Simulated scan of single mutants.
Amino acid sequence: MGAIDFTDAQQALGFVRPQFFNIERNIYEVKYPSFDYAELVPVVTEGNEWARGTLFTSIDAAGKAEFISGKGFDMPYADVSRSQFTKGFALAGVGFEWSLEELQTAAMEGINLSDTKARAARRVGEQFCWNLAMTGKPDGATSQKGWTGAVNDPSVPTTTAAATGTGSATTFPTKTPDLILADANAALTGVITSTNEVESADTLLLPTSRYLYLSSTPRSSTSDTTVLQYLQQNNVYTARTGRPLTIRGIRALETAGAGGTKRMVAYRRDPEVLRFHLPMPHRFLPPFQKSSMAWEVAGILRTGGTEVRLPSAMAYVDNI
């Protein structure tokens, strides 16, 4: 391949654009399981990607039926109450750049530009969304927008694990397998009873350390089943519905509880209950020459973070 005159903008653009489109196509084929927030929080991409936010109405029924006289005028009525809520969207971005040296070297050697930087930008963007979905903190430490996530929403009912461990402790390692199973099922039962059997939690999230503990702790000294395996097969949700309970371990729960304690979360995984607003998933814009020695590829996304719409269909249990 002959040398390209990168002082000629059109000629340079003719080299950069095909490189970019090939890289972009490859990047979106890559999956990052460690940041798969969609597995835990339903992702909603509906609506205009440039909308300021979303507005929804919550409706609740009120009233009760009563015995009446056949000639009475005291007919009881049912009514509905309506509440409106809004959730704003915000623009975020992470991109990458190519230097003049990288472009010239690739052109001279007749090779494609490396997609390493694009992969890094894509991965950072996924991590950003994962942090937002879980805690509302894009960097894992601070909430720049005042948002919360699936594991720390203040509207969700919160309790402390039963003090049934050694010395009235509440943590799993201080308890027998039977007591641990009782705690997990109590979280699931809490959602059912607090909603008058309207809701059932189909997902149980544990801190990664506790998940690993349950997966390596025998159900009993004479059993070849772990506590986790037993819980998977014998739990309130499965007994009630005949469907398997989803149990996952996530690092965001290690310090999510009150006082930085470990938290367990039980909830129904459905966009009716909670959702992650992503009207514009992360994408790259066409490259442009930002200086005499650098080409930039901007990567942008718009999100509203996690929104809990039915907090009663969730339950937090702290200090496990």
Rank of each mutant, 00 (worst) to 15 (best):
P18G: 04
G14D: 10
Y28W: 09
A294D: 10
Y211T: 01
D178M: 12
A201S: 09
T222Q: 01
F288T: 04
A162S: 09
L179I: 14
R219I: 13
A187R: 10
G88T: 07
N26L: 13
A141T: 15
T261R: 06
E307T: 07
E272C: 13
R248I: 09
R219Q: 11
H277C: 07
S200Q: 11
I250W: 03
C129Y: 01
G260N: 07
A106P: 09
S81I: 13
S58N: 07
A169M: 04
P173I: 06
T255N: 01
P286L: 02
N185V: 08
F89I: 09
F89M: 06
L13E: 10
G149L: 04
R283F: 01
T246P: 00
V265W: 00
R123A: 14
F172W: 03
P42G: 03
A294K: 08
I180T: 08
R52E: 08
V156Y: 11
P207S: 02
M134Y: 00
T7A: 14
V265Y: 00
N319P: 01
T148K: 02
L100Q: 09
A120V: 14
I300P: 14
A51H: 03
G249Y: 08
D224H: 07
P218K: 10
V265T: 09
E39F: 06
Y211Q: 02
T176Q: 06
T195P: 03
L204I: 07
Y230H: 10
P271H: 10
A133T: 04
F73E: 15
G47Y: 01
F20K: 07
T176K: 06
D60S: 15
A161L: 10
S168H: 13
E254N: 11
W98T: 09
V94F: 14
A313P: 03
G299L: 12
F128V: 05
G259F: 08
A92P: 11
R263Q: 03
